[in-house]
């Protein structure tokens, strides 16, 4: 049977389903091998959400309330590319994060750090024709969690992206350079390859930094490409 086969090598960058140090994976990881199924048009199509779905002000997380949030104002920008190095234009990015004190507005986050009435921590933006995105926010604080004794997450921003197709869908986290919590974080370290881990660390960039206003960080994101090869593949399902 002829099937569209997508290169799978790059997927080794992802964390395995089971990372015992990240204790939630133990009961939530698949215990059986994955079953191959035939591909369909899904691999070349995916949700398209463009300019009609984003309000420009949603890219500035510091201007969503009456006053300004506390914390270190930052600009985060970068390009979204595919594995072939092509820019991914007009694709939606959703971001969410804790406030400068490390507290999420989420009802389930009840740890003793203050909420900020001027900060929700949720934003959206769209890449331009060159795949570039940009949002303004405050640097999130580190926060504790209950994975193990004295567990703290390094400061991070959550990101969700769509890309070319349903296959390129990505949910990930962006970290900040030099965080002392990296060696102790089972989520960051669930990525087996050190080089792949480092691709989640943003880069301080003085050229993005705006004088007397905000520090700038660059974070490029590479999504799965469009390369597919029709080939004969044995299957046992």
């Amino acid at each position: 049977m002829t099937r569209l086969i997508y290169p799978l090598d790059g997927l080794k960058a992802h964390p395995p389903s089971l990372s015992p140090a990240y204790t939630s994976t133990v009961r939530r990881a698949p215990s059986k091998p994955l079953i191959l199924l035939p591909h369909s048009l899904t691999e070349v199509t995916g949700p398209v959400y463009g300019h009609d779905s984003v309000v420009p002000s949603e890219a500035d997380l510091t201007r969503q309330h009456a006053g300004e949030p506390l914390g270190e104002r930052i600009i985060v920008t970068g390009r979204v590319l595919d594995e072939e190095g092509r820019p991914v234009p007009d694709t939606l990015i959703e971001v969410w994060q804790a406030n400068a004190a490390g507290r999420y507005i989420h009802v389930k986050d009840q740890h003793p750090a203050p909420l900020d009435a001027n900060f929700t921590g949720a934003g959206r933006c769209l890449t331009d024709s060159d795949g570039r995105y940009r949002f303004v926010t405050v640097k999130p604080g580190a926060y504790p969690w209950r994975n193990h004794h004295n567990a703290w997450r390094p400061a991070h921003i959550h990101l969700s992206l769509f890309g070319h197709s349903f296959l390129s869908r990505l949910v990930t986290q962006m970290y900040f350079p030099g965080d002392p919590l990296f060696p102790f974080d089972p989520i960051f370290n669930s990525i087996p390859d050190g080089a792949a881990r480092n691709r989640l660390i943003s880069r301080f960039d003085l050229s993005v930094t705006e004088p007397e206003w905000a520090l700038g960080y660059q974070f490029d994101i590479v999504l799965r490409g469009r390369q597919a090869t029709p080939m004969e593949e044995p299957h046992d399902d």
Binding site: A122, R199, L200, Q218
Partner: peptide, 28 residues
């Protein structure tokens, strides 16, 4: 200072957990 050129190899950005606190953005 100029932005550094993109690396020649475009290696996949690894995924990370969606976490327990996504609702206020993803289903808000």
């Amino acid at each position: 200072m100029m932005t550094e050129p993109l690396p020649p190899a475009h290696e996949l950005t690894p995924s990370q957990t969606v976490g327990p606190f996504f609702h206020f953005m993803l289903t808000p």
